[in-house]
């Protein structure tokens, strides 16, 4: 069973209590609760921003702004819902704001930034040489993902890297849950076609 980095980030730090308890404490002004929430969720926010932008500095800016916005809107956050989809929707919004400021169309592919994205990949195995083929496949997959339009890239990343459920993805993308599967399948097919084309080239 493969554990994704996004999932691993959430699984760590259970000592601080559940997200719901921390949200309650943070609303009551407890500083430690805010710090624990930030530590628990900021890496996932950063990773999503990095996967959408391909640039470390931009991703860091977006993740910081998203965390700040998350905390300023904590008062109206429904504590019964999961934090991650809410935070990811904020990240997505911040990414789109950044594109707009730079006059980039949201549908644009990452281009050179996609190559930069693969440079941030690290090999999780103790013996990278023994796992060379899998490592190469990972690099090829992320290069192909970077070539997908943003709307297709984001849905694959949300499902396959961050391990979000279909209902969480629907919340992040603000689409009906019934649309998630068809959109995801279309994106996966396009990704596979890119990989196939690259292989044949």
């Amino acid at each position: 069973m493969v554990e994704s980095q996004g999932l691993a980030a959430l699984a760590g730090d259970v000592a601080g209590g559940s997200d719901q308890e921390l949200v309650d404490q943070a609303r009551a002004g407890r500083r430690e609760a805010r710090e624990t929430l930030a530590r628990r969720h900021r890496q996932a926010a950063y990773l999503l921003a990095l996967q959408m932008l391909g640039n470390r500095d931009d991703a860091m800016d977006v993740a910081q702004d998203a965390m700040l916005r998350f905390f300023t809107s904590l008062g109206s956050f429904d504590r019964e819902r999961r934090i991650q989809p809410w935070l990811f929707a904020i990240v997505r919004n911040q990414v789109r704001d950044l594109w707009r400021r730079r006059q980039r169309r949201p549908g644009e592919r990452l281009g050179e930034a996609g190559e930069a994205l693969t440079r941030h990949l690290v090999d999780p195995t103790a013996n990278p040489e023994a796992d060379l083929r899998r490592s190469e496949l990972r690099h090829r997959v992320w290069r192909a993902l970077a070539e997908l339009p943003a709307a297709k890239r984001e849905i694959v990343v949300l499902r396959d890297f961050h391990d979000l459920s279909y209902s969480d993805i629907a919340q992040v993308l603000d689409i009906p849950i019934g649309t998630v599967m068809s959109r995801l399948h279309g994106a996966r097919r396009q990704l596979r076609a890119r990989l196939g084309g690259e292989r044949h080239a």
Binding site: L47, V122, L137, R138, V141, L145, V157, F161, R192, L195
Partner: peptide, 17 residues
């Protein structure tokens, strides 16, 4: 094929701040 691509995406790790 889709499962292999999904597994590659899922098992990826990025350096983080």
């Amino acid at each position: 094929e889709l499962a292999a691509v999904r597994e590659a995406t899922m098992s990826s790790t990025f350096d983080t701040p």
